[in-house]
Amino acid sequence: MSPADLIARYYAAFNAKDWDGMLACVSDTVSHDVNEGVRRGGKEKFAAFIAHMDECYDENLTGIAIMTSADGTRAAAEFIVNGIYKKTDDGLPKAHGQEYRLPAGAFFEISEDEITRVTTYYNLQKWIRQVS
């Protein structure tokens, strides 16, 4: 599978809320860099993050553009996050079903047809302004 196909499969699973499908795209030792957070290691912690996000947010990604390195070991994606803030997340404004639309991006490392690192970026202050 090409790196672009792997990333497309990962985001198709995200949009389908197929969390097992997403997890099938990442290695057991995946490193996950959360926007403005600490690095988490391993599929178990990644799965816990996905579950937490699903509890607090309902998101769909549009306009996904995927770029890959010539050697296939790295990829990047840019997209728009279209979401609903369902449940208050710790340290963030109170949730009451606010809608938001936010550009975001992610960087990936890939090895043996698996994602070994995911690093996601978005403008947290812009998100806070939209839901406040």
Rank of each mutant, 00 (worst) to 15 (best):
E78M: 11
A47L: 04
T120S: 05
S69P: 15
V30P: 03
T73C: 05
I128C: 02
C25Q: 07
D89H: 14
R74K: 14
T68P: 03
K45Q: 12
L92N: 06
A47F: 01
N123E: 07
V131P: 07
L102D: 03
F49H: 09
Q125W: 03
F46I: 05
I84C: 06
Y11F: 13
H96Y: 08
A4K: 13
A51V: 11
T29V: 10
Y11R: 03
S132K: 14
A95S: 08
S69V: 13
Y100N: 04
H32D: 07
N123G: 03
V26W: 00
M22R: 15
T73M: 06
G42A: 04
E114V: 10
A51H: 05
D20W: 00
G105C: 12
S31G: 12
G72Y: 08
A47P: 03
G72N: 10
S132R: 15
T88Y: 02
T62W: 02
D18H: 07
D20G: 12
V38L: 11
Y10A: 05
A16K: 07
E44S: 09
F108S: 03
S111I: 11
A12C: 11
Q130L: 06
I115M: 00
S31W: 02
H32P: 00
K43R: 14
D54E: 10
D20K: 13
T73S: 12
W127I: 06
L23T: 15
Y11I: 09
T62F: 00
K87W: 03
E55P: 00
L61H: 07
I66A: 00
D90S: 15
A65I: 08
K86M: 15
D18T: 11
G91C: 13
L23W: 05
D28W: 02
V34F: 04
A8P: 01
A51E: 13
D89Q: 13
A48L: 10
G91P: 04
I64D: 01
I80A: 07
R9H: 04
G21P: 12
A65Y: 00
R39Y: 05
T29D: 13
A75C: 04
S111D: 14
E99S: 14
D90W: 09
E114H: 11
R74Q: 14
Y85Q: 10
T88I: 06
P103E: 01
M67R: 10
S132V: 15
H32Q: 06
G37A: 09
F79Y: 07
A24I: 13
T88F: 01
K17N: 08
F49G: 10
E59P: 01
Q98L: 03
H96A: 14
G42K: 03
M53I: 10
K126D: 15
D20A: 04
D28F: 00
F79R: 02
K43N: 03
V34N: 06
A75T: 12
D54G: 05
W19Q: 12
Y57M: 15
Y122T: 06
N60G: 05
E112P: 00
K86R: 14
